[in-house]
């Protein structure tokens, strides 16, 4: 426990920057490289790094297993729901033009929601993988 002091301090130091980078990749995806998938994986990396250094119970205290299992379908629902909303507002499925009064705003809004759905599903799935593997005992 004493030997990993540097790892623990450095992890605590680096965690917020990983999250900020994930959010940057997510919400700057319209302008720079990146998008929901990359941001989701980076956000999941933050939880996984925390779990590696501080143990699985600590990571599951932040992101409970039940929340992860709730978020995996939620992301797909947000994505598919964006398409349905576009349909209800008079367009085709996944057509973003009618989501706002201005077509260009609609496209921005649609991409924002769709990428949010991808982020939620990808991040929670990766965290679920980690929890599933790390939760196993050696037999």
């Amino acid at each position: 426990m004493k030997l990993d002091l540097i790892l623990r301090v450095m992890t605590k130091f680096i965690l917020p920057y990983i999250l900020v980078f994930a959010l940057y990749v997510q919400f700057h995806g319209d302008f720079g490289p990146g998008g929901g998938f990359q941001a989701g994986v980076i956000a999941a990396c933050m939880i996984i790094l925390y779990g590696l250094i501080f143990g699985l119970p600590a990571a599951q205290a932040i992101v409970p297993q039940g929340l992860v299992e709730f978020l995996i379908p939620l992301g797909v629902l947000i994505y598919a729901g964006t398409g349905v909303v576009g349909m209800l507002l008079g367009g085709n499925y996944l057509e973003y033009t009618y989501l706002a009064h201005e077509p260009s705003h609609g496209h921005h809004l649609g991409i924002l929601f769709v990428e949010l759905g991808v982020l939620i599903t990808v991040a929670s799935t990766m965290v679920a993988f980690f929890f599933a593997f790390a939760g196993r005992k050696r037999t």
């Binding site: 319209d30 490289p33 994505y79 598919a80 996944l94 496209h107 991409i111 769709v114 990428e115």
Partner: peptide
């Protein structure tokens, strides 16, 4: 959308990305 990759992935190819998700 200035980033062509994003507009192709999330807009032109929205169905495809929905499938990937």
């Amino acid at each position: 959308v200035p980033n062509v990759v994003t507009s192709i992935l999330a807009d032109y190819r929205g169905f495809d990305t929905l499938g990937e998700t």
